[in-house]
Amino acid sequence: MTKLIIKIISFAILIICIATSTKVTISLLLALTISSLLFVLSKISFKIFLKRISLLIPFLLFLLLFTPNTFLAIFLKSTTAILTTAIITDNFNITTLKYLGQKLHLPSYFIDILAMTFRYSFTLVDEVIALKRNLYLRGSFKKKHLFHSGFLGSLGSLIGNFFIRSNFRAQRLYRSLKIRGY
C-alpha cells in the first residue's frame, strides 16, 4: 500500500513538473527534492537512475551550450521526470495501472487505452529487438558512426518497418476486440 501511495504522489509530481513553467525554478527544485526522497524511500537501485540520466547528458550539454538561460530549469525538470518515472514503473504491472486509474477516477476508456498501451509496449519492444537482430545478422549496423549511409539506411528501415508493423498490429488488435464484442 505504501508503495502504491508513493507511486500516486510520484505520478502527481510528474504531471505538475511537466505543466510547470521553466521560469519557476523554486517549485522545480522542490519537486526534485520530493521526488529524490520518494526515490530513496522506494529502495530502487541507484544504477537505474544513472543509466537513464546518462542518456540525457548529451541533450543537457547541448542545452548548456546553446540556451544557458533555461539549462537549470530543464535540468531540474528532466531529472525529476526520470526519478518519478523510475518510481512509477518499478515493479509495475497492468493490474496496478488499472487500480491507479480507478483510484484517480479516470474514465474507463482511458484506463483501457492505458492498459493496452502498457500491454503492447512489451510486444512492440520484442518486435524492435527481432527487427534489429535480423538487420544486424544481415550486415547492418556494423558501421557504428551516425553519418555512415549504411547505418542511417538500417536505422531508417528499422523505424519504418516498426511503424508499419505497429499499424498492422493495431488493425489486427482492433478486429480481435470487435469480434469479442468490445
Binding site: N93, I94, T95, K98, A115, M116, R119, Y120, T123, R169, R172, L173, R175, S176, L177, I179, R180
Partner: peptide, 15 residues
C-alpha cells in the same frame, strides 16, 4: 462465433 488469430498476441489484450 469465435476467432483464433494466427498470432496469439493479437487476441490477448487484458491484464
Amino acid at each position: 462465433t469465435s476467432y483464433v488469430a494466427q498470432n496469439p498476441d493479437d487476441g490477448l489484450f487484458c491484464s
